[in-house]
């Protein structure tokens, strides 16, 4: 199988967010970056499919040179090849999806795997955009996948349950936590990743459809009332929830 995994490079989950001078983006100072956590599930799934069916796994990312770190991590986990669509300009999901789809369309991939969402902008759009641009189905937020007799069955999380989607290859999927348990890179993998080549391409420019006007830090105004230290505080808690907060 030819498997393409799209990976993103994002601020780590502990990052303190400050707004940049332009008032529109995160201030980059003091930010540590990491492979988008959901993309690890996508990489793991691709590696397992290759281990079972043979083939090749290609990791693909769009971004600046810093994204190479995420490609190295993907290589260390075991992907065969890495490609950087080198672009430092501001892009929205549509524009990223367009560049990814352009790069993937001539790869004759059987499956293109994504994380469910980037934990920077929480957009959850790129997998569907790439699927539609390539003219193939996309199944989002999957927690289970089986391929047999030319059919693909994916279980996806929905509100209050799961649904099973039937589709066929080639297909786009996006991985939700629970799909698998991602492996840790081995020492050998990490060493090997350092010397593997990263192919670079320059994607075509694409206009922005969604424009950020401003970024704000929310002002949390919480009551912060400690009511007591044991179950004797409960009547007062319930009273406050009923009469003051009016939520029950």
């Amino acid at each position: 199988m030819k498997l393409v995994v799209c990976v993103n490079h994002v601020p780590d989950t502990e990052t303190k967010v400050n707004v940049n001078e332009d008032g529109k983006k995160i201030h980059p100072v003091g930010v540590n970056w990491m492979l988008n956590p959901f993309d690890e599930y996508a990489i793991e799934e691709a590696l397992r499919l290759k281990e079972k069916n043979g083939g090749e796994v290609i990791a693909l990312t769009l971004g600046g040179d810093a994204h190479k770190e995420t490609l190295r991590k993907s290589l260390a986990m075991g992907v065969d090849k890495a490609m950087l669509l080198k672009d430092d300009t501001l892009r929205d999901s549509f524009a990223i999806g367009k560049a990814l789809a352009d790069a993937i369309k001539d790869m004759s991939a059987d499956m293109i795997l994504f994380g469910k969402q980037s934990i920077d902008y929480y957009d959850e759009q790129i997998p569907g955009i790439v699927g539609e641009l390539l003219g193939i189905p996309s199944v989002s937020t999957i927690v289970k996948m089986e391929i047999a007799d030319g059919k693909v069955h994916c279980e996806r999380e929905i509100e209050g349950g799961h649904e099973t989607v039937e589709t066929s290859l080639p297909v786009v999927i996006s991985a939700q936590k629970g799909l698998n348990e991602p492996r840790y890179p081995s020492l050998k993998g990490i060493m090997g990743a350092k010397s593997k080549p990263i192919e670079e391409k320059i994607p075509a420019a694409f206009p922005l459809k969604v424009e950020t006007l401003a970024m704000h830090k929310p002002i949390a105004s919480r009551v912060k009332k400690i009511i007591g230290t044991d179950d004797t505080a409960v009547p007062e808690l319930i009273r406050l929830l009923h009469e003051e907060a009016k939520v029950i």
């Binding site: 601020p11 989950t13 990052t15 303190k16 967010v17 707004v19 529109k24 995160i26 934990i119 920077d120 902008y121 929480y122 206009p207 922005l208 459809k209 969604v210 424009e211 950020t212 006007l213 401003a214 970024m215 704000h216 830090k217 929310p218």
Partner: peptide
Amino acid sequence: IVATRPVYAGKATINVKINS
């Protein structure tokens, strides 16, 4: 139409407008 949406795990919000 200006839409407000949370980013960075709710640590910030952005206001966006759509140009298409």
